[in-house]
Amino acid sequence: MKYVTPELIEKLKSTFPKAVESVGEFRQEVTVTVKKEFLIDFMRFLKVDKDFQMDMLVDLTAVDYPERNPRFVVVYHLRSLSKRHNLRVKCWAEGEELPSVVDIWKTAEWTEREVYEMFGIRFLGRELKKLLLPQRYPYFPLRKDFPLEGYEEPCEVWDWE
């Protein structure tokens, strides 16, 4: 898979000198970590800038690091269909909250709901409902402290509407 070139990363750094926390590369895959307060501007720039043209949000997910603070990192996989390059953007969810990117890419409509129900990260500026789990389910199953076997839920959790 082709990822963005180092020149483009330099361009990102010069456009957002304060936003880019770090740039990592592993197996030719480039990851950029941005600060939460710049996230929306950063994403909008990636979508509209003519060198990037990231018109597709391939996937949105999160990773839980219980011993760290902030605990969760949200991972965005971006792609440009015309330039054929990819970029992974990460953003630490301080206070377990992040601004929503659903206005930029509609893919986030369901994937953000899934991250919310699985990790408990709230996305601001949109309506959030659980996607796969019952609405009244009290736990966040993909957190590392949730046991594999789960908890025995009281019956009233299962809302059949």
Binding site: M1, F26, R27, E29, T31, V58, D59, T61, V63, V75, H77, N86, R88
Partner: peptide, 20 residues
């Protein structure tokens, strides 16, 4: 330690695996 994303074209579309 590291993270990768690999995708194949499944019958329904892009099937990707992101492993940390």
């Amino acid at each position: 330690p590291g993270e990768v994303y690999a995708a194949v074209e499944g019958p329904r579309g892009e099937l990707g695996y992101y492993i940390v």
